[in-house]
Design a protein around this nucleic acid. Structure first.
Length: 469
RNA sequence: CGGGCUGUGGCUUAGUUUGGUCUAGAGCGCUCGGCUGGGGGCCGAGAGAUCGGGAGUUCAAAUCUCCCCAGCCCGACCA
């Protein structure tokens, strides 16, 4: 019954398994310039689903989409000291264009705090103009030395939100809202990734931020992946770009700004959070194709039945694709499994003779014989069950691979196979340095109940430490 | 940027040590035909490589020498 291995197994070589999945599920290819990525239709369809879900949540939080230029004057970066220091190693700079040397080099955006800050300063006059809530979907460039498809590429796609507020409290509350209502909600309820939430330690913070909120997912090899970040930028950028408003009292005041983003890295996270030895496993709510109808044979009677089943499923709100039965059955089944399509509806002469189809769930391989009449509702039910099972499975793995420890040594030990939870007081700057020396880092700092604190100075915080991508 | 290594059809690679038997072989993939068909099925026929690039040594270079280029792995940052 077991099919021959199309992929390297996870236990044998996890990074290689990842590469195999990306290639064989036809998600992406390496671009011609080192570190660049070609996103293929299936990979892009997954990204479009991620975009749609995140975009809807961003709009629900009141932000509007806009677009700012790819090219940024180099001088902008110099205005915020930490920001320029943090980003200069990975900047791509255009010095020659239009047939001549440029008088001022132009940076290809690695992130847009600076340009957007410049325009916020122009647009904001009064407290009545606040809050200003912007978001853009864009590509960004951060020159990478060690690229990996989706996880770390020199150019990637993302959304970056940028907002300006009258007070620290408003800004902090909005960053928190995005963190919880956009990212965490999406991760848990759509992507089925029970991410740990918290704030970054000072040394892991975004360059130029006063506080960074993060969602950290556990991959199936026990390593962490940062899946989103939301930053409180304080008045750092407002000061650098002169983003000021006139208060009700008539005083000129500096704004408080935030920025927040999630990228195509989430596609990599999807692969590693749920994938198994047969390939990708896509949560139903995220799947571009929720059910593939596989014709066992390329025969008119079977194909007609497939078309009718397809129509019925679509009418029932299930997104589908029909595999018309060219090529061997085993090959086609394997290909759909690698792509992680949640349900496979097998339609063959034997099924049709009995007025049924065979439905197979991708996550647990369970087979269900379903009558044609019951199929749409049964499919919806199975999709819902799979969505729940994926989240519960991921949570169970996460909890089983998270160890409570009381020393840095034990944290390092635990981080070899999973996460460690340790009192933040036990870590300290020197403890964090020791962790970092062994490629382990503080992924986030959270309250004892798992919620996100407001600052690293709250009492009784715990640190989640792990190796990370 | 420092250290280790590799470049041979689309992909994985044999051949390089010891130059000639290489008109470069195979597997996967691809094309065509047939048989098949409920887990990568079988048979047959094909297409596809100026052996990373350049220079050199030699009667003779995938193989030896030099230079260049590209990529991979390991060490400091990042969504």
């Amino acid at each position: 019954m077991a099919s021959p291995n199309a992929l390297t197994s996870q236990s044998e070589d996890f990074p290689r398994w990842y590469q195999d999945v990306v290639a064989k599920a036809e998600m992406a290819d390496n671009g011609p310039v080192r570190g660049t990525m070609v996103i293929r239709p299936y990979g892009y369809a997954l990204w479009e689903r991620i975009q749609a879900e995140i975009d809807a949540r961003i709009k629900a939080a009141g932000a509007q989409n806009a677009y700012f230029p790819l090219f940024i004057p180099q001088s902008y970066f110099a205005r915020e000291a930490e920001h320029v220091e943090g980003f200069s190693p990975e900047l791509a700079v255009v010095t020659y264009a239009g047939g001549e040397e440029l008088s001022e080099p132009v940076v290809v955006r690695p992130t847009s705090e600076t340009v957007i800050g410049e325009f916020m300063a122009k647009w904001i006059q009064s407290h009545r103009d606040l809050p200003l809530l912007l978001n853009q979907w864009a590509n960004v460039v951060r020159w990478e030395l060690r690229p990996r498809l989706f996880l770390r590429s020199s150019e990637f796609l993302w959304q970056e939100g940028h907002t300006a507020h009258v007070s620290y409290e408003d800004a902090a509350a909005y960053a928190m809202r995005i963190h919880l209502e956009v990212y965490h909600d999406f991760l848990v309820n759509v992507m089925a990734v029970p991410a740990y939430v918290g704030i970054k330690s000072p040394r892991e913070r975004f360059a130029g931020a006063i506080n960074s909120l993060t969602c950290e997912g556990m991959m199936r090899d026990g390593k962490a992946l940062q899946m989103s970040t939301s930053h409180e930028l304080g008045q750092n950028f407002a000061r650098a770009f002169n983003i000021v408003y006139q208060s009700e009292a008539g005083q000129s005041e500096l704004c408080h700004t935030t920025s927040w983003g999630a990228s195509t890295r989430l596609v990599g996270g999807l692969i590693m959070a749920h994938g198994d030895d047969r390939g990708l496993v896509v949560p139903p709510r995220l799947a571009p194709i929720q059910a593939v109808i596989v014709a066992v044979r390329d025969e008119p009677a079977v194909l007609d039945a497939c078309a009718a089943i397809d129509a019925a499923l679509r009418a029932g709100g299930v997104t589908t694709s029909v595999d018309r039965g060219r090529g061997s059955f085993g090959r086609r089944v394997t290909d759909w499994e690698i792509k992680g399509v949640p349900l496979r509806v097998e339609v063959g002469p034997r099924d049709l003779a009995n007025g049924v189809v065979t439905v197979v769930r991708r996550d647990d391989g369970s087979k269900h014989v379903v009558t044609l009449e019951a199929l749409p509702s049964r499919a919806t039910e199975l999709l819902a069950q799979m969505q729940t099972a994926l989240l519960e499975g991921a949570r169970a793995r996460r909890d089983a691979a998270t160890a409570d420890v009381t020393s840095i040594d034990d944290a390092i030990e635990a981080a070899q196979t999973g996460f460690a939870r340790i009192a933040w007081d036990q870590v300290g700057d020197s403890g964090e340095a020791r962790l970092n020396d062994l490629a382990v880092s503080v992924r986030c700092i959270q309250r004892a109940d798992g919620s996100t604190p407001v600052s690293p100075n709250e009492a009784d915080l715990v640190a989640i430490v792990a190796k990370s991508y």
